[in-house]
């Protein structure tokens, strides 16, 4: 698809994605707005600029195109909005989020055949292994395209991640870009209180990863960083981005507050939120 390179244009799309997130979660009074809002800039940069991908027709195998794996599946609202807005399925389908018979399940699934989703996630800690598998298949297929994955910082408390983090550098998986959404929040409170990650950079480096920092709520920085990591791929190193974001970014009363991890806004809060987010592409 055609890439959007203008930062201002990308920011406008991100604003619409945030509106989608708020309206989807409000409509069913369930879902996870906090992390979704925090990652809206990342998803917009990825799906409208960085990825070399073909939304239609969707190809599960993803051969000769970049593949994205969302590990922290609870931020499905931002994933679905980015997929729909970039052409994987009709934007109007966003209105079915979490409703009976929907393809937009609470957590992403392949079961209902939703285009753009390649594996079910939601039970945390599994996506990095899957992303490594996709990357290994690309190597076996002599396919130079890349695999991107996203993981929550709290999600790193799941042990399987550390099995995967050990595997990738040891097997020289250098066509995979792992991004950690480092917002410092999880359901029960601040990650630093619930189960501190310690020096994450040092941990990743000691496992053999090339670690890069990114401000996940600065579109220019997101695009430039992701463009840079592209050039670092296929050089023998596994690449991890520690992406600083603010949970709830873009809606002032939700920012940096773990209570918005999985709480939906009421009518008044939605109105307030939407007044802060301009309708740039047209609501679904």
């Amino acid at each position: 698809m055609n890439k959007i390179t203008d930062t201002k244009e990308l920011e406008k799309i991100a604003t619409q994605v945030r509106r989608d997130i708020m309206r989807m979660v409000h409509a069913v009074q369930s879902g996870h707005p906090g992390g979704s809002l925090g990652c809206a800039d990342f998803f917009t940069a990825l799906y409208f600029n960085i990825l070399n991908h073909t939304p239609k027709p969707f190809n599960m195998h993803g051969k000769e195109e970049d593949v994205f794996i969302l590990s922290n599946g609870h931020i499905s609202p931002v994933f679905y909005s980015a997929l729909a807005r970039s052409g994987y399925f009709e934007v109007s389908e966003l209105s079915t989020f979490r409703k009976l018979n929907t393809r937009l399940q609470g957590h992403p699934a392949t079961h209902e055949g939703l285009e753009g989703v390649r594996v079910a996630t939601g039970s945390l800690g599994q996506g990095m292994s899957v992303a490594i598998g996709v990357a290994l298949a690309k190597k076996l297929n002599n396919d130079p395209s890349l695999v991107f994955s996203l993981h929550g910082d709290g999600e790193l408390q799941e042990g399987q991640n550390w099995e995967a983090l050990m595997f990738a550098p040891n097997h020289k998986v250098d066509n995979l870009i792992v991004t950690i959404d480092y917002n410092g929040q999880q359901i029960d409170g601040r990650t630093s209180d619930v189960m501190p990650l310690g020096d994450l950079h040092a941990k990743l480096r000691s496992f053999g990863w090339h670690v890069i920092d990114m401000n996940g709520n600065d579109m220019k920085n997101v695009v430039e960083t992701l463009e840079t990591v592209r050039t670092l791929a296929h050089r023998g190193e596994s690449i991890a981005i520690v992406m600083r974001t603010k949970m709830g970014m873009g809606v002032d009363f939700m920012e940096d507050d773990h209570r918005w991890h999985g709480t939906s806004p009421n009518d008044e809060q939605l109105k307030n939120a939407l007044s802060q987010l301009e309708e740039t592409l047209g609501d679904y």
Binding site: M60, H61, G62, V67, I69, R118, V119, G125, Q126, G127, M128, S129, V130, A131, I132, G133, V134, A135, L136, A137, G159, Q160, E163, A164, F167
Partner: peptide, 12 residues
Amino acid sequence: ANMIGIAAGLTI
């Protein structure tokens, strides 16, 4: 656990 996940990814 990692083995099962990698296997799932390889099928993709």
